[in-house]
């Protein structure tokens, strides 16, 4: 008792030393390990200024220089105005990625938001069951999803064409007809969008259901008392209250669709005629099929810039949301 009372300072000091040691013991290895991440980012930023292939010997530092020459901004100039095959493929991939992302977002919202409201309106036990089943595709591996949808889209033995035949229509070569298009976008692109939407909607659905549950019931009741019908309550009360969630969902959906790869690589591998070639596929092909790693690093930088811009826009929007 007296020892403790007479010596509180020293005791606290001892604690501080122990805590200090703990902090060092954790952060030092973590920083060392984390610097690998910095190294890879830095390396990628350097690579994009070189013509680099791991097969060539090159210079002494990271194999750069020599037969892997420094080309400055040439890759980026090429992306904008080059006529080489890889430059044209890059522009196609960028365009397709934008089409994909901007088609997925509204379609996803058009499915998930009403569906979430419907699920939210049923009895609670059924609600849980519905939510669980709708979420199944999200946890399924995207390769599995791509395989399953490949069989649905099969021109001969696929379910979709069987239904079309049953209704008296002409079967469609969903994934392989380069001339088929709908609303100016190739049918193959719509087909991969369909599979992607199917895999992804359960995810936003869960977020929306959680957000809907957090809206106090009194708001809706007040509107009802004032004579609003269900639709008016949904559009005038629920949706405005969901705005923060909506913004968040929009950005997350955007980000993940800019990075789409698995489903497209398995279903079409970018075909037919590069109509479903997207940026990540372009990066993968260049880096690991054709060993054009400098070029691929430059393309990945463009993708990162796009992703960063979307993220920053999100942060800005969310911040204004918090302010009011």
């Amino acid at each position: 008792m007296s020892a403790q009372a007479s010596n509180p300072k020293k005791r606290r000091g001892g604690l501080a030393v122990a805590q200090h040691r703990f902090v060092l013991g954790v952060t030092v290895p973590m920083i060392l390990y984390g610097s690998i991440g910095v190294l890879t980012i830095g390396w990628a930023m350097v690579l994009m200024f070189f013509k680099y292939s791991p097969g060539r010997a090159g210079g002494s530092i990271l194999g750069l220089g020599g037969s892997n020459p420094f080309v400055g901004l040439e890759h980026f100039r090429n992306m904008i105005s080059g006529v080489s095959l890889e430059a044209r493929l890059f522009r196609t991939s960028l365009k397709n990625t934008l089409i994909f992302a901007f088609a997925v977002l509204p379609l996803n919202l058009a499915i998930t938001l009403p569906l979430a409201a419907l699920i939210e309106s049923v009895r609670s036990r059924l609600k849980i069951a519905f939510r669980a089943i709708y979420f199944l595709p999200v946890v399924t591996s995207s390769v599995g999803v791509a395989m399953m949808w490949g069989y649905l889209y099969d021109p001969q033995q696929g379910l979709l064409n069987a239904i079309i035949r049953l209704l008296g229509g002409t079967p469609i070569s969903w994934l392989s007809d380069p001339r088929a298009e709908f609303l100016g976008v190739s049918v193959a692109m719509w087909a991969v969008i369909g599979a992607y939407l199917w895999q992804d909607y359960g995810y936003n659905l869960v977020i929306f259901i959680a957000a809907l549950q957090s809206i106090p019931r009194e708001f809706k009741e007040a509107a009802m008392i004032d004579g609003a019908n269900g639709w008016q309550v949904f559009t005038r009360v629920t949706i405005p209250l969901l705005r923060p969630t909506l913004l968040f969902v929009c950005v997350m959906t955007m980000l993940s669709s800019f990075q789409v790869f698995d489903i497209i690589q398995v279903m079409t591998d970018g075909g037919p005629n590069h109509q479903t070639r997207v940026l990540v596929l372009d990066i993968y092909d260049n880096a690991f099929r054709y060993q054009r790693m400098g070029w691929a690093a430059a393309v990945s930088f463009v993708l990162v810039v796009i992703v960063m811009i979307v993220t920053l826009v999100q942060m800005r929007l969310l911040r204004t949301e918090w302010e009011y």
Binding site: G37, T40, A44, I283, A287, A296, S300, V307
Partner: peptide, 25 residues
Amino acid sequence: LFGWFLLTMMIPGQMTMIPGYLILA
């Protein structure tokens, strides 16, 4: 340090994939 972590969270894996491969090689 924490900000650095959040930053790495924002960098998509497609960018670090190529150097990552070279390191593994």
